[in-house]
Amino acid sequence: DLSALRVEEVQNVINAMQKILECPICLELIKEPVSTKCDHIFCKFCMLKLLNQKKGPSQCPLCKNDITKRSLQESTRFSQLVEELLKIICAFQLDTGLEYANSYNFAKKENNSPEHLKDEVSIIQSMGYRNRAKRLLQSEPENPSLQETSLSVQLSNLGTVRTLRTKQRIQPQRTSVYIELGSDSSEDTVNKATYCSVGDQELLQITPQGTRDEISLDSAKKAACEFSETDVTNTEHHQPSNNDLNTTEKRAAERHPEKYQGSSVSNLHVEPCGTNTHASSLQHENSSLLLTKDRMNVEKAEF
């Protein structure tokens, strides 16, 4: 173990290094160091905050020279020094078990990766560091076993998940096959086929009936047209017969005018059967003409 005197000496050296690497504005270890034209180094955030307070150039807090945003430059070497100082402080805390008085939040800088452990060898070769390295080497064999167990647990979990997924996939297939086998029997399929065939026959029977009705309507229309044509021909046949009657009536009127007047009046009210309204109107006109002729003949006879 380190003596108290040596611990104090190391602590004083760390404090001196820390004062050199402090920012003059925030009085902390410089984060993202930036250098000016006057070779003074500050935190990048502190300098941008200072420049944004005034429009135009501002003055350096140490030498009062003008500073602009374009004049600022990043210093990589200074950032490396800060990183190495942080590593020294971490090693000091691990070796002594004491917390550094002016320690900052170094938890963000710590890294437990194997590459980081290899890099620590180049920091300080001390008894405390050696003991700590031995402890780490002793704890390393235990870690692979834990990793193997965790991997086995994960693989077993994956296997159970896969088996569950396969079961879920197989179950719908089985149910679907069961439904297909038990849903419709052979008799049901035959009945469905016969039902479809009967429906098709009914459709075939319905369509000819409609065509037959249309044919019957067409035949009825044709018969009505033929009947009207026969009526017209009958009226045409009746007209010459009426003319013959008129000639006979004229002759009778010349011989017996008194008797014919009474008979002509009675004939006005008689309509021949089986004739249309057109034929009756023609008869009325003929009878009126005959009456006028008879009157003329009677007057001539009187004179």
Results as ranks from 00 to 15, higher is better:
residue 2 L to S: 12
residue 6 R to L: 05
residue 6 R to P: 13
residue 8 E to Q: 13
residue 8 E to D: 13
residue 9 E to D: 04
residue 9 E to K: 13
residue 11 Q to P: 14
residue 16 A to T: 08
residue 17 M to I: 06
residue 18 Q to H: 07
residue 19 K to Q: 05
residue 21 L to V: 06
residue 21 L to I: 06
residue 23 C to W: 00
residue 24 P to A: 00
residue 25 I to L: 14
residue 25 I to F: 08
residue 25 I to S: 10
residue 27 L to M: 11
residue 30 I to F: 11
residue 32 E to K: 12
residue 35 S to C: 09
residue 37 K to E: 00
residue 38 C to R: 15
residue 38 C to S: 14
residue 39 D to H: 01
residue 41 I to T: 01
residue 41 I to L: 07
residue 43 C to R: 15
residue 46 C to W: 15
residue 46 C to G: 13
residue 47 M to V: 12
residue 47 M to L: 13
residue 47 M to I: 05
residue 48 L to R: 11
residue 49 K to R: 10
residue 50 L to V: 06
residue 52 N to I: 12
residue 52 N to S: 03
residue 53 Q to E: 06
residue 54 K to R: 11
residue 55 K to R: 01
residue 55 K to Q: 09
residue 56 G to W: 01
residue 56 G to E: 12
residue 60 C to G: 15
residue 60 C to R: 15
residue 61 P to R: 03
residue 62 L to I: 06
residue 62 L to S: 15
residue 64 K to R: 09
residue 66 D to E: 13
residue 67 I to V: 12
residue 68 T to S: 02
residue 68 T to N: 03
residue 69 K to T: 03
residue 71 S to R: 10
residue 72 L to I: 12
residue 73 Q to H: 13
residue 75 S to C: 03
residue 78 F to S: 08
residue 79 S to C: 07
residue 79 S to G: 00
residue 82 V to L: 03
residue 83 E to K: 13
residue 84 E to D: 07
residue 85 L to I: 10
residue 87 K to N: 05
residue 87 K to E: 07
residue 89 I to S: 12
residue 89 I to V: 05
residue 90 C to R: 11
residue 90 C to W: 05
residue 92 F to Y: 05
residue 93 Q to H: 13
residue 93 Q to P: 12
residue 96 T to I: 12
residue 97 G to D: 10
residue 97 G to S: 12
residue 99 E to D: 10
residue 103 S to I: 05
residue 104 Y to N: 00
residue 105 N to S: 12
residue 106 F to V: 10
residue 108 K to T: 00
residue 117 L to I: 04
residue 120 E to D: 14
residue 121 V to F: 01
residue 124 I to V: 12
residue 125 Q to H: 10
residue 125 Q to P: 15
residue 127 M to L: 05
residue 127 M to I: 06
residue 132 R to L: 02
residue 132 R to G: 14
residue 133 A to D: 07
residue 133 A to S: 04
residue 136 L to P: 12
residue 138 Q to P: 01
residue 140 E to D: 11
residue 141 P to S: 07
residue 143 N to D: 10
residue 144 P to A: 06
residue 144 P to R: 07
residue 144 P to L: 04
residue 145 S to C: 02
residue 147 Q to E: 12
residue 147 Q to H: 14
residue 149 T to N: 07
residue 149 T to S: 05
residue 150 S to R: 14
residue 152 S to C: 08
residue 152 S to I: 00
residue 153 V to G: 14
residue 155 L to V: 04
residue 157 N to T: 07
residue 158 L to H: 11
residue 159 G to V: 14
residue 160 T to A: 03
residue 161 V to L: 07
residue 162 R to G: 09
residue 164 L to M: 11
residue 164 L to P: 07
residue 165 R to S: 13
residue 168 Q to H: 00
residue 169 R to W: 02
residue 169 R to L: 07
residue 174 R to K: 10
residue 176 S to P: 11
residue 181 L to F: 01
residue 183 S to Y: 00
residue 186 S to F: 00
residue 188 D to H: 02
residue 192 K to T: 15
residue 192 K to N: 15
residue 197 S to N: 06
residue 199 G to V: 01
residue 200 D to E: 02
residue 203 L to S: 06
residue 203 L to F: 03
residue 204 L to F: 09
residue 212 R to T: 07
residue 212 R to W: 00
residue 217 L to S: 13
residue 218 D to Y: 03
residue 219 S to Y: 02
residue 221 K to T: 09
residue 222 K to M: 07
residue 222 K to E: 10
residue 223 A to D: 12
residue 225 C to F: 00
residue 226 E to G: 01
residue 226 E to D: 07
residue 228 S to P: 07
residue 229 E to K: 11
residue 229 E to V: 00
residue 230 T to S: 04
residue 231 D to N: 08
residue 232 V to L: 02
residue 232 V to E: 06
residue 232 V to A: 15
residue 236 E to K: 03
residue 239 Q to K: 06
residue 241 S to C: 08
residue 243 N to K: 14
residue 243 N to S: 06
residue 243 N to D: 11
residue 243 N to Y: 00
residue 243 N to I: 15
residue 243 N to H: 04
residue 246 N to K: 12
residue 247 T to I: 02
residue 248 T to S: 12
residue 250 K to E: 11
residue 251 R to H: 08
residue 251 R to S: 11
residue 255 R to K: 07
residue 255 R to S: 13
residue 256 H to L: 03
residue 257 P to R: 07
residue 257 P to L: 10
residue 261 Q to E: 12
residue 263 S to N: 14
residue 264 S to F: 01
residue 265 V to I: 09
residue 265 V to D: 15
residue 266 S to A: 01
residue 269 H to L: 15
residue 271 E to G: 10
residue 272 P to S: 07
residue 277 T to A: 04
residue 280 S to N: 10
residue 281 S to L: 01
residue 284 H to Q: 13
residue 284 H to L: 00
residue 284 H to Y: 03
residue 285 E to Q: 14
residue 286 N to I: 12
residue 291 L to F: 00
residue 293 K to T: 03
residue 293 K to N: 01
residue 295 R to K: 06
residue 299 E to G: 11
residue 299 E to D: 08
residue 300 K to T: 02
residue 301 A to S: 14
residue 303 F to C: 14
